[in-house]
């Protein structure tokens, strides 16, 4: 039970950590100063959330690993984030579609976690959901602007939607860890998020004049169980470099 809970927390923490790192890769390269800062803000929000989830996971695990050990000294197969969040940044269209798909899910997931029987989980979720509400508002807004924008931006957005769609199915897959979290009353049922997610995404994509791919399309999965796309290994190579080269280094 406790092992499952640790795994459950690692998933939440890894989603936030990996997406935060991806967004931080935009720092200084955003298409406009204002967008650059907005992405950095989102990255920092997610990093803060990752710290809370991973610290709690480390405490429950009780094996002497703190948030830093979990973030910087695990290998790719030990990460259990969704495949979606590790996908490379690509163009701004790719980044915003990835963000939109994730934010829409993240917001629903945190709503569920706010009702967790575990007070610490409910507390972290209550803090995070305020940040994520804004993330979702921003990414929805940009999806509509870029989708219903110029012929070029619409083309790029449609390509991003079609490309990333295959990584969305995993968000609604339930496995033993999820089931255990539901039984213990500490987590949410991912399957139940699918309909509300689809209905929100459908609404925004239609306003953005973008085609929504079929809901029953082939979906990639495995991230939650540690089977990742190769993109994650390169990301970790950069993110973990310092702690790998100089173990225990501090500022």
């Amino acid at each position: 039970m406790s092992n499952d809970t640790v795994q459950y927390l690692l998933r939440l923490g890894d989603n936030a950590l990996i997406l935060s790192h991806r967004l931080s890769e935009w720092c200084g390269k955003g298409p406009a100063l204002e967008e650059d800062m907005a992405l950095a803000n989102t990255a920092l929000d997610l990093l803060g959330q990752a710290r809370l989830w991973l610290s709690y996971a480390g405490e429950l695990e009780d094996a002497g690993r703190d948030e830093d050990a979990l973030a910087y000294r695990r290998n790719d197969r030990q990460f259990c984030n969704l495949l979606l969040v590790e996908r490379p940044n690509g163009s701004y269209a790719d980044t915003m579609v990835r963000q939109f798909f994730f934010d829409a899910w993240h917001h629903l997931a945190l709503q569920g976690l706010c009702r967790s029987a575990d007070e610490r989980i409910a507390g972290i979720a209550a803090k995070a959901i305020k940040e994520v509400e804004y993330h979702l508002r921003r990414s929805s807004d940009l999806v509509v602007r870029l989708g219903d924008g110029t012929a070029q931006s619409q083309k790029m957005m449609q390509r991003a939607v079609d490309e990333l769609w295959t990584y969305t199915g995993e968000m609604f897959e339930s496995d033993g860890v999820d089931e255990q979290a539901v039984v213990a009353g500490i987590g949410f049922d991912p399957v139940a998020l699918r309909e509300p997610w689809l209905s929100y995404v459908r609404e925004v994509l239609s306003e953005a004049t973008l085609r929504i791919p079929p809901a029953d399309a082939f979906m990639q999965k495995g991230g939650k169980q540690g089977r990742h796309t190769e993109a994650l290994s390169y990301l970790l190579g950069e993110m973990q470099y310092l702690q790998r080269a100089y173990p225990g280094a501090q500022w």
Binding site: A32, L33, E34, M37, A38, N41, Y134, R137, R138, D141, R145
Partner: peptide
Amino acid sequence: SLHASDAEMAINHARDVYTR
């Protein structure tokens, strides 16, 4: 001041740039 394509985006950008 900041750049934005319309009022709604200007509010979002102002939030991101000036209320951090």
